[in-house]
Amino acid sequence: MGQNDTYKNRIELVQGTLDMLILSTLQWGAKHGYGISQSIRINSGDVLQVETGSLYPALHRLEQKGWVRAEWKQTESNQRAKYYRITALGKKQLLSDHTRWQRVVNAIAAIMKTEPDAS
């Protein structure tokens, strides 16, 4: 498959992380699905690519959990699209996800520091 090269440097996201990234992206305002995937791709410098097969199930799951709310709105280019907005519950979830994430990152970083710096 020719697409494989394009994807080579991208990282697959584990599910919990994807939820966190989506919620994080929505902190700065409501976005539609495409917007969210673009936002994650651009903000990660093209490293993180969200598969649509993961994104949409994740969005619907978050909506069911009450962490985001969806509504249909006009886009800037005057198209109808489904916008997702983070809820108060979602913000709380994001905070706790983020805290846990930070702990994991710190812990991993602490372990990695004991190795000689390869870069």
Partner: peptide
């Protein structure tokens, strides 16, 4: 139907970009 609309919108926006 809504899900389908949502995905069609996604495709349209991506194409426009």
């Amino acid at each position: 139907k809504e899900l389908d609309d949502e995905i069609q919108a996604h495709l349209r926006m991506a194409a426009e970009d």
